[in-house]
Amino acid sequence: MELSKVKEHTYLFDRGTNTTYLGKTPEGSHIYSGETIKEFAIGEVANGGYVLSVMFDSVLRHYSTRYQVDPIALNCFFLRKTDLGSLVVEVSDIKVSRKGYCLTKAVIKQPVKQSKQRLEHLSDYHPEDYVEKVYGVFTMGNMDNEEGLSADHDLPSPPNNGDRTLTLHQGEYLKDIVVTHSDASLWPVPDSPQPMEVHQTTIFRDGRPIDAKSLAFWCDMFVSPPNMLGPSMIDGQIWCATMQMEIQFKQKCHDGLKKIASSFVTHTLKNSRFDIDGWIWDDRGELLVTTRHQCLCLPWERNIKSKL
């Protein structure tokens, strides 16, 4: 299905992640124009997973007429926080194959002097006026034609399989966009730290179906597990900033998928640096993606300053 034909502006998420192809530079890079919108901000910074979905939109467009239409993996680095406003996605092929796996680099850049006006013409793009914000490497393939050995070992179970009680959780941010039910027994308590883990189900409030592009958003749409340590260990509000994220795609989303279940666990928090392992399942209990993050716990004030 052609991306541009999928009711692109019916849902807020699509309006916020839509990019437009401007053309190819003399150096061989493909330039897409887009923006980040305030509805997806955490404080004054665009949600990291949402930013990756903007990048995904450009890469999926880049591959829309190729054999490799499915994301297989994404490895990305957050170089600087992404401001709200205009951006470009610069897409360059690393490895091209007729029917094998392909590798493509994508870089989100924003103008040094931030603008809310999206670029409309390639001739107006001057790389020296831009700074790199997010660097990603995509592996692309075709899941419908994959075959071979399959096995699972020691996977966690989806949190909505009956072992946990999930209740409505009204988060402070993005509550107008998502509806979340989570395991409230793990939420912070005053006297002692809770395990650093989050288990939940989520949907788009406006009913938007869940697809590959949105999975990048869902891989970062949760209260970061170190928050569960609570006031016994955390003095004030913290900002958990992602430095690096990996997403491994295990299978395609089925048509009409509206709700996913997810679990996110931090194993080690050391000197404010921590990891997160995550799993996302569809409404049939099938594993869609695994993800791993490397993050920092920072004072909340760092989130609202103009520069890190």
Rank of each mutant, 00 (worst) to 15 (best):
G141H: 02
G85S: 05
L74Y: 05
E2Q: 12
Y173A: 13
V59C: 07
E197L: 05
L166W: 07
T268L: 04
K213V: 06
I260G: 03
K109Y: 08
H267W: 10
I280C: 04
D282G: 09
K109D: 00
T167F: 09
A261E: 10
L288W: 08
T242P: 04
S306M: 12
L174Q: 06
E120L: 06
D235M: 01
H199G: 07
K133P: 01
L52Q: 10
E147V: 02
E8L: 12
Y125L: 06
T242I: 07
A261Y: 10
Y11N: 10
H121I: 04
K258P: 02
E35W: 00
G23S: 12
E172Y: 07
G230S: 04
D277A: 07
S33L: 03
E301I: 15
M143F: 14
R61M: 04
F78R: 02
E246L: 00
Y135H: 15
A241Y: 10
M228N: 14
E2W: 05
K5T: 15
D154L: 13
M140G: 05
L74K: 00
K109R: 06
W239Q: 04
R292H: 14
S150R: 14
S53E: 02
I177T: 08
V69S: 14
W218H: 07
L52V: 05
L215A: 00
S115V: 08
M243G: 09
V107E: 06
I42G: 02
S157T: 13
V265W: 05
D124L: 09
E197M: 11
S33Y: 09
P195M: 03
S4Q: 09
L122I: 12
V265K: 04
K305S: 13
Q170N: 12
Q117D: 15
T104W: 03
S157N: 07
L60R: 05
S306V: 05
N142A: 10
L74G: 04
T82N: 07
D255I: 10
E27M: 09
W300Q: 08
V107F: 03
H9M: 15
I234G: 11
Q110L: 11
C240K: 00
H293I: 03
D277M: 10
K5W: 02
N18T: 13
G230M: 00
T268R: 09
G207I: 14
A41Y: 03
T139Q: 09
G230P: 04
T266R: 02
R302Q: 08
T36A: 08
L119P: 02
L174G: 04
G285L: 03
L22N: 05
R205A: 14
Q114H: 15
R61P: 00
V289H: 01
F78V: 04
I280E: 01
G16F: 00
I42P: 04
L296H: 01
T65D: 11
